[in-house]
Design a protein around this nucleic acid. Structure first.
Lengths: 251, 251
DNA sequence: GGCGTGACTTCATCAGATGAAATTCTCACT
DNA sequence: AGTGAGAATTTCATCTGATGAAGTCACGCC
């Protein structure tokens, strides 16, 4: 079995992110990171000098410096001697860092971000399903089938269904036997989990998605990469249409 | 124009990574990060205690602590009071962090990683080209055409051709108007640049890839998402076949 | 007006002290 | 011998103060 597949439970994906309660420096990371990604600290501007942050955040210089270094490692900040610490341009940010994604999607994702996420799935998931059909071994196929069964089993419960759906798509990515691809999906799932909580889908709607998922699983089981891709495209195109409709209706 | 498109020159993509020369703490980040990703510090094991690292790396405790915190932020390390600092399991690593990717691919990528990269392109690029065809505006189309022209112009020079090729694919991703997708490609290009330097492709071979790229550009220009996807699939499938052959021949 | 120089700002680093949390060890008790 | 409470120890977490270095900026000289 591949060492990294199905490695992260939903909980552990969250645990990757820096826990704001744990340590003083983590408080600094979270406070500044959320402000930067949230937009209240604009790229190009300077953040307060170390001494001010010490007062403002109520921590020592060590904690401030360690926190700033972590954010610099995520591409959000750049420190320059004598010139202060400036917020780096958005293109430099590690957008697929778990923390950065959380700060972006968790405080209620913006309509534009919902579109980005839906397009991303359309761009990635059909191709991932295709490679999964090419590379899946017996264990991976079984995992997909189990995830499909869980999907059917939870179709009447909105909350567990979301997790089962995320687990199904994850199983598909895991079947592709590609750690980079699986990492990408783990990050997408962080964003998806936030978005899903917003538009609580109806039970009836959930059930309509079951045949599509079934076709994906079947195609991968038969190593039919063309059909796997097509079936997955249908699933994510439907999800994208739903998201667009939801944005139109409520925002 | 979209704020983030075509934002990074090849140089700035590299500059995202932590510069090992710049600061003491950056030395720590690089020294430990390269060892961890390179495999000489295995997941689950402890790294030397702070005091030992101070002696071993010849820096102060502050630098060690800041460096360790940066690596913890990238998911490579976890610090625990009284229990030392341990290397986190591979599934926790931020695999699409520029530094982590560099440490993985730069010291001469391993055959398995070449396969991972080739599969990843097959999974991602056709879908990206499809969304690009859906979303491209006039500016994006022009950028792709310019990149295509540069590809033709450099077909006789192996080195510039690699950069022109990377720029073309980046222009396609940029046309999709999706910052997460573009970020993914920026990271892929870091890995690709390392791999490309290994198998020096022949001039004749480069020229054979031109018609395929032309078809991609044409399809996007005409907003024909189906054809854009198909054309891009052909391009990356050829690249994958080349990579596989290269691995068989030389490794 | 151009340019060099020096004062100043701000981060970079080191060192020492204290604290807190978890592990490990000790040892009496059952 | 097994067990469990508690002490000793380890190791990271944080604060503070001092020093250094690398830019920045302003001022005055030419």
């Amino acid at each position: 079995m591949k060492a990294y597949e199905m490695s992260c439970s939903p909980a552990s994906v969250q645990a990757v992110a820096t826990d704001p309660q744990r340590d003083r420096h983590a408080q600094v990371v979270h406070a500044l990171g959320a402000r930067i990604v949230g937009g209240s600290l604009a790229p190009g501007t300077s953040i307060p000098i170390e001494e001010e942050l010490v007062g403002e955040l109520g921590v020592g210089r060590s904690a401030v410096r360690e926190g700033v270094k972590v954010l610099a490692g995520k591409g959000l900040l750049e420190t320059r001697r004598s010139a202060g610490t400036i917020v780096r341009p958005r293109e430099s940010w590690n957008l697929l860092d778990a923390d950065v994604l959380s700060w972006r999607f968790e405080p209620e994702p913006r309509p534009g971000d919902i579109r980005v996420l839906a397009d991303l799935r359309v761009a990635l998931e059909p191709g991932a399903a295709r490679v999964a059909a090419e590379r899946a071994d017996a264990v991976a196929v079984r995992r997909i089938d189990e995830a499909l069964a869980a999907l059917y089993a939870t179709a009447d419960d909105p909350e567990p269904f979301i997790e089962a759906d995320l687990a199904f798509h994850k199983a598909v990515f895991a079947a592709a036997d590609n750690d980079l691809l699986l990492y990408i999906y783990d990050m997408i799932s962080i964003a998806l989990r936030s978005v899903r909580q917003v538009h609580t889908r109806s039970v009836a709607h959930n059930k309509e998605t079951l045949p599509g998922h079934e076709r994906v699983a079947l195609a991968i089981r038969r190593r039919h990469h063309r059909k796997a891709e097509e079936a997955m495209r249908e699933v994510v195109e439907v999800a994208r249409a739903d998201a667009e409709q939801h944005v139109r209706l409520c925002c």
